[in-house]
Structure formats: C-alpha cells, structure tokens
Design a protein around this nucleic acid. Structure first.
Lengths: 210, 210
DNA sequence: TCATCAATACCCCTTTTGGGGTATTAGAGG
DNA sequence: CCTCTAATACCCCAAAAGGGGTATTGATGA
C-alpha cells in the first residue's frame, strides 16, 4: 500500500486526485495539506510513502518546502506537480532531490505510473520535461539557457512597475538604490526580450508572472 | 440526473473532476473532450444538461467555443472554469451567455454547488470574481462614466502601447502624427487616472479594455 | 577552492515620456 | 443653427526611461 500525502493549494485539483487514487487498490491518500509549512509536523506523526506536492503555492512554494524537509532530515520520495514547464523550477526541484516531476496536464495513467515509480524510489520525469532537461544540458553554454525566468527580487520589481511606481518610488518601496532598480529593470527587460515597461506588464500578465 | 460534458485540455484535472462527480448520485459525466472543436458534433448526438468548460485551451479557447455553439443554435447552460481571474475573460464569457464562472482553486463543495445551480439555468459566479464584476458595473453608471470608457481610437492606442510600441511607431501604425499619439496617450491617462504606461496596461488588463 | 550568479550600486549618454498649454476640423445631436 | 466631442496637430520643458558599461558582495554549486 502506497500511503500518500498531497500538498496543494488547489482544493478542487487535490480532491480530484484523491478521487482518482481512491479507485486504486494499492494507493491511499492519508491527508491533503494546503500549506507547505504544516508538512514537517504532519510527517512526525504519520508514516508516509510518497509526497505529491504542487510547486506553485502562495505561502511557501514546493521548492521551499522540500528544502525545509531536507534540512530537517526527512527522507521521503517527493513527486512534484506543476502547471508550468519552467526549466528553472524543474532544475530547482531536481537539485532539492525530487524523485519525479509531472505536469498537471498529464493523463490519469501517467499520474498513476509516476506515483508507483517514485514511491519505489525510482525517478519519474514527464516526457515533456525531458526535452527541456535535454535542451538545457545540451545548450548550457548558449545564451538562451539563462533567458528563462525572473528571480524573486525581479518579480517584486515587475509588480512595482505594474503599480505605476517610478524608479524612485520602487527604490523606496524595496529599500534599495535607484541604480539597483534600474539594473533590475534592465535585466528583466533583457530576459523577457521587451522594449518598454508597458510591454513588460502585458507579458507578465499573459505569462502569469504577476 | 445532470448529464455533463467536460471540455478541458488538462486530462488530470478533468479526471479529478470526473471522480468527484462519480461520487454524486445526481451527476453523470457523459464525456470528456480535449478540444473545443469537437463539441458541436458531440452535442448533435448526445443529450447534455450542462457543459463544464475550461477557458484557457490551446487550439480554440472556451470563449471561441461558446461563440461557435451560439452561432450553431445550441442552447445548453455553460459553466466556465479557469485558473485566472481576468475580468476580460469573465466579461467575454458573460457576453457569450455563460451561465456561471468558477475558479479552478474553488473547493469541491463550491464546484458541486456551481454545477447544480447552473444546470438549473440559474447564474453562479464565484465569490472571488463577484467583486470584479461589481466594480466594473458600478464604475459604468457612476459619475466617472466618461472616465471609464475610452473611445475606439484610444483603445487602439492602448493596444499599441501594450505591444511595446513607442510614440513614433504608434504614429506610423495608425497613420497619424506623433503629436496626436501623445495627445491620445495623455487623455487616456487622465481618463483612467494612471501615471505611467505600465500602470495603464495593468489597468487595461484588469478592466478588460484590451 | 574556484566559478557562477543574484543582488547590489555607480558611471556615461540618448531617447521617450509625461504634463502644461492651444487649436482646427468633422460629426452627432439638441 | 449651435454646441459638444473625438480626432487631429502643434508649442514648450522637466522628468523618467532606456541602453551601454563596470564592480563589489555573499551565497551556492561543482
């Protein structure tokens, strides 16, 4: 019997997954937790064979949660779930020792396969992701690799820009110098290949950055 | 018995929802379709009480699919599903006659309530987006009426700005002088009470201008 | 230990934006 | 016929954004 802990901030999605697992003889969903912070406490009082965790969560995200679990010495295979195929997230998850990685647009069969594979401590990586990883290692020295996503700080700057703040106000808001804000803005624009702040905000909206 | 057709490009999510419905006595998922294009053909051979459709789909999106169904004379209540709370999408869905709108991070109970409400041809709007709709309609009839509505020409300018075009390029694009573009931009910003183009684009997205 | 990278900060400079005016013309509507 | 507005166009000028550098620090990975 594979005992699973689901960590996901989307109740509907989690409920759905739970229902899928309920129809399987060998899988049991022990608990569904919304917030990553509550995971260590739960693990100390429960025997779990696999953690199925969403990467994108509001309070602390999946990567952070994994880091926390690693630091506290927990050794439970983790299958990461996500909507996005961001290479950066995949890399971060791998670096933190994720046992597998699956997209939310996977099929039911793929999910079950991923769960059974990772709970046996074997790696499972969704086909769509494999291409990304391959491309990453292949093109490690090219310039396209780093043009991936924005750092947390950069996202903060994007949000400030979208609020209509100018460089000076952003500097005050984030307690950094105007020069730094300018540098961040420039780096962001280079990464996202846009020429104006307006275009940046449009892209950010469409890509879900903000 | 509520007979449901699910139109969603995320198999896992759809499977989950299906499982939830399977546990309900009065709800039956007749089919899950990945691509909106296949919906009319399916409806011609099946009796359906409610369509549960994702807004964001790759080939043709939920709004387009609704438009198609309306043109072909189908009259089946539609409950729209989405990850995002974009007012633009909500408005578009309402204009095409959607019976309801629910976010993918809703709870199981909310989903079931939404399904039962909309299948009875009553409107259901998720709490989180009610505020958006309220604000939109409130602004429409208030004293700031003119400050809300942009002229067609002004909307064109907004769209150009969002594409990252500068004043010169917009002037060329619209076959008017740069001075005129500046005047339009200034008037737009006055009307919407924003200070930067970036803020303008953010507002435009949220208010559904573009 | 060394290489990288994110975050920070500063220099140079040109181009664009934003804010204040004014004015003409063509249409829509009383 | 007259008014009101959208769209057009121009003036001036200060402020901000954008684009090119370089450099230091601290954390982290190989």
């Amino acid at each position: 019997m594979i005992r699973i802990l689901i960590v996901d901030d989307h109740p509907l999605f989690a409920e759905g997954i739970k229902s899928i697992f309920n129809m399987e003889e060998d899988i049991e969903v022990v608990r569904h937790i919304i917030n990553g912070k509550a995971v260590p406490d739960f693990l100390q009082h429960n025997e779990i064979d696999l953690i199925l965790m969403d990467i994108d969560m509001p309070v602390i995200d999946g990567i952070e949660t994994m880091r926390m679990l690693n630091q506290q010495g927990f050794d439970i295979p983790i299958l990461m779930l996500t909507m996005h195929q961001s290479l950066r997230k995949v890399r971060a998850a791998l670096e933190e020792g994720a046992q597998g990685y699956i997209l939310k647009d996977a099929s039911k069969a793929e999910l079950l396969e991923a769960v059974r594979t990772t709970s046996a401590r074997k790696n499972y990586f969704h086909r769509k992701i494999n291409d990304h990883i391959f491309n990453y290692f292949r093109g490690k020295n090219s310039t396209s690799a780093k043009a991936d996503q924005l750092s947390e700080r950069e996202k903060q700057v994007v949000r400030c820009i979208s609020e209509g703040l100018n460089t000076r106000s952003i500097a005050k808001e984030l307690y950094i110098s105007e020069h730094t804000v300018k540098t961040h803005r420039r780096n962001i624009m280079h990464k996202l290949k846009v020429k104006t702040s307006a275009e940046l905000i449009k892209l950010a909206y469409e890509k879900g950055v903000i």
